[in-house]
Design a protein around this nucleic acid. Structure first.
Lengths: 157, 157
DNA sequence: CGACCATAGTTGACAAGTCTACTAGGTGAC
DNA sequence: GTCACCTAGTAGACTTGTCAACTATGGTCG
């Protein structure tokens, strides 16, 4: 893929568990090439600028395999919504209700996007099933978030 | 609180949705004081080093209120476990099973910690109920993760 | 014809956050 | 008595990631 392709993939398919800035993508690609994990092939663009297509090398595959088998790095949690709930007592009733309402709307919108993607997806082989499973993970957590919002709004507001 | 107190609170009560490095905490406190959002009071330590107790100022309360009412920043997701699942087709069966098993163990351990905290907690006033709600949010998502793991392991492995 | 949009990529300056090592006093174990 | 650990805080170097601006080319819309 090119950096541009990668950016689009990050924004669409894996965006719910991994985001990336394009400046970061291009710099990381350059680093991967410098490390011998990827190779670049310049392809003349058809009615568009030239594309710098990046291909994984044998060394890159080995590095990927090592990373896949390694212990997942501890995920740094940082949820600005929950942080607001934590200090929610400093909000008035309207502010608190608004906080929950906006959250619900954002979750519902995200859920609708995911379910549309889910409907269009195919679980042809194991790889596709696993990629689909990450989407199902997102959907399951969004539904949990909605159920939790229901309980909290009933109990607290 | 002192930076030291804050570090302990981050690690215990809010760690599941907001982590912090102590170097970062001390620097942020210094910045808050420089901005007039906090004041420092040096308290002689009782059988321990002096404590730099930080107290919120009126300006700090105003900034907190503004932040509470503001739109929650878009949370940057970055989940190293789901990233591995996404590329899981490049793992052999044992590797994939091990990935899920280790995840399940980590989730169960975290869930046990949260449920112990939940049992010890009291929902005395609205503030306490809201803080408890953030814990319940963590518990709900951990249970969802376990249920999802069950489904995935049945379907894919 | 000009405005705007999509493709494709680059760069500098920053902000955010982490790692490591350090100072320094008091407590408890062996 | 010395070693490890807890409290409490500081500081430099570093990595990571973001923002904003920039260069290009070609196509569509009014």
């Amino acid at each position: 893929m090119t950096g541009y392709d990668l950016k689009r993939h990050f924004d669409s398919t894996v965006g719910h568990f991994w985001t990336a800035d394009k400046a970061h993508i291009y710099r990381t690609l350059a680093q991967l090439v410098a490390e011998g994990c990827a190779e670049v092939e310049t392809v003349a663009g058809a009615g568009a600028p030239d594309r710098q297509e990046h291909h994984i090398t044998a060394a890159g595959r080995a590095a990927l395999a090592a990373w896949l088998a390694s212990e997942p790095e501890r995920h740094v949690e940082r949820d600005p919504f929950l942080a607001r709930v934590f200090f929610g007592a400093d909000l008035d009733d309207d502010g608190l209700r608004s906080l929950f309402t906006r959250r619900r709307e954002a979750v519902l919108a995200q859920l609708a996007r995911f379910e549309r993607m889910r409907a269009e997806a195919e679980a042809s082989d194991r790889g596709a099933r696993l990629r689909l499973a990450t989407l199902d993970n997102g959907i399951a957590h969004l539904r949990t978030e909605l159920a939790w919002l229901d309980t909290v709004e009933e109990e607290v507001v």
